[in-house]
Simulated assay, not measured.
Amino acid sequence: MTSAPANLLRPDWNTTAGDGWVAAQSAMEAMLKPFSQALCGQLEDMPDASVLDVGCGTGATTFDIQDQMSPGGRCTGIDISAAMLGAARERAAREDSPARFIEADAQNHDFGEARFEAIVSRFGVMFFADPVAAFANLRSACTAHSPLHMVTWRPASENPFMAVARETALPLLPPEVAQLDKPTGQFAFADRNYVADLLAQSGWSNIVIEECNAACAFPAAALHTYAARMGPVARLMPQMDESLRETVTAAVHEAYLPYVQGDEVRFDAACWMISAKA
């Protein structure tokens, strides 16, 4: 296999993005819990499998899958963020979990003799520099007929909560800061035809892409941290002076207030559940 370009977001996930996720870890895990549960449901009949969780972050889905396995099963998470994996490994040690974690880019990591019997991902596959190469590499790490199950975002137009921070912040920024904004790839798999084509190109078959919707929530007490530390706005914060940071954070926080209900932030998420076979 020819070498593929590295993940261009690796520096972000090892600075502001990774640190922000760790800071907001409890809120993010609560928010995305429905999708971890959906992926667990796909593996209920595979209690003894060797499973790979791609873009595992702090390991929430990895641990959920591991917890439902028999003693013979094993879930391994892979991610490029040292900070997020540090949190995952601390939890594994604290809970004496058999879950394992690899710090590497799944696009070009040499999995060696590993042969996974299933691959899952909760919002962790949209950031590859070369998606076809990445999914070909993942397929080569599987046993024959291994299932692939992934959750990805549908378009931003169907997920206003996920886009409100950027839409609020950019008009407040001076041009020299605003021009540093760059797509993160969050909605890179919004087009189901594009996803089906790249999976077919990388050797996967029996491709099924279905709508997956969920009501998501996290504690309102975590909203300020979420507004200040998560997403594309957080990546621009180091380029702002203190006064501008405070202005932007306050504006973004206010933009989220329509989603606050009582002591929770609530919104509806519009996603794809993508399945295929190696």
Rank of each mutant, 00 (worst) to 15 (best):
D110K: 07
P238R: 07
E103Q: 15
M126W: 14
A134D: 03
G41L: 07
R139A: 03
R10S: 10
S50T: 15
E211V: 13
A134W: 00
T249I: 12
T2I: 11
A222S: 15
F187T: 11
D12C: 06
F123I: 01
D268P: 03
R166D: 14
D53P: 00
G185F: 04
N7F: 00
Q239W: 10
M31R: 07
D241R: 07
M46A: 12
F187S: 10
G41A: 14
L9N: 04
W272H: 15
S202T: 10
H149S: 15
V51S: 03
L148A: 03
F187K: 07
D263I: 08
T2N: 10
I207E: 03
D96F: 11
A188I: 01
E29D: 15
T249Q: 05
T247A: 13
F123E: 00
L138K: 03
R139D: 04
F35K: 02
D45M: 08
P219N: 06
A88W: 05
D67I: 12
G231Q: 08
L223S: 06
V260K: 11
A133E: 00
N206M: 08
A227P: 05
G41D: 14
E158W: 12
V265M: 04
P11A: 00
S3V: 12
A38K: 11
Y194K: 10
A92S: 13
F135H: 01
A27F: 12
M69K: 02
Q261G: 12
W272C: 04
E210G: 00
G73T: 12
L8K: 09
I102D: 03
A214D: 11
V265S: 03
K33L: 14
M162R: 02
S205R: 04
E29W: 03
L173M: 13
D130S: 09
Y256M: 11
C216L: 04
T168V: 10
D19E: 14
I80K: 01
R100I: 06
A215C: 11
E95W: 08
A221Y: 01
V120A: 04
D96N: 12
S50L: 14
L198H: 05
G86F: 01
R94V: 09
A255G: 10
T225M: 06
C212Y: 10
P155I: 05
A133P: 00
R10P: 02
E254R: 13
D191R: 04
